[in-house]
Amino acid sequence: MNDGPQIFHIADTAHRNAFELLPWYVNGTLSAAETASVAEHLKVCLRCQHELAQLSILNDVIGADDGALTLEPTMMRAHGLIDAYERDHGSNQRWGIFRSLWRRPTRTSAVLAMSLASVVVVALLLLKFDGSSNADFTTLANATSKSPAYELTIIFEAQATHESVRELLIDIQAEIVHGPSDEGGLVVAVPRSDADKVIAFLADSPIVSSFAVPERIPSR
């Protein structure tokens, strides 16, 4: 039985594996198990021994240093490229920070927060204008008049209740601008187009003691 070097056929699996791995056996990057396997095969394979000799020469030749290189001027050109890149893309990058913050989780949270805020605002508005609320004259007086046309000062009878005053104001579509005064008067705003009807309504109302018509309201 011959235990010395032999020539293996390429179809031999162990030979093919070792033959393939020889370049990395030469540069020393194989795993320990692969290195041991290749080394073992090299002991008995003439073809791989010859190949190893050639690849070692190649490793020495290719691995040799090329000598002096011109790093500094090349790196200066690289800085120039980056400067140009930053000029072209700098603004996009700055906005990119905001874009990156506006990712899906943030976006979803923001949409949910805005939806919740909208619901709260609507609820508050409904509460504010709800007829069954406990709003008194002061509260009503603080309400902002949307489109006042004429302002009237109304003095109510002593027996006028909170509820009856409210019904009257709703009937004449008045918005309280100021009041109530010490005499129980309210300054209210009424639509310009309804001024005559409002004056007639107030004149007939049992809870109205008197009312003052400003100069700009057409006299009857």
Binding site: L21, P23, W24, V26, N27, G28, T29, L30, L58, N59, I62, G63
Partner: peptide, 14 residues
């Protein structure tokens, strides 16, 4: 492949 193996000493997986 040649250059990365012999000059840069990379493994085949790298």
């Amino acid at each position: 492949v040649i250059e990365l193996t012999y000059f840069c000493d990379y493994s085949y997986s790298e």
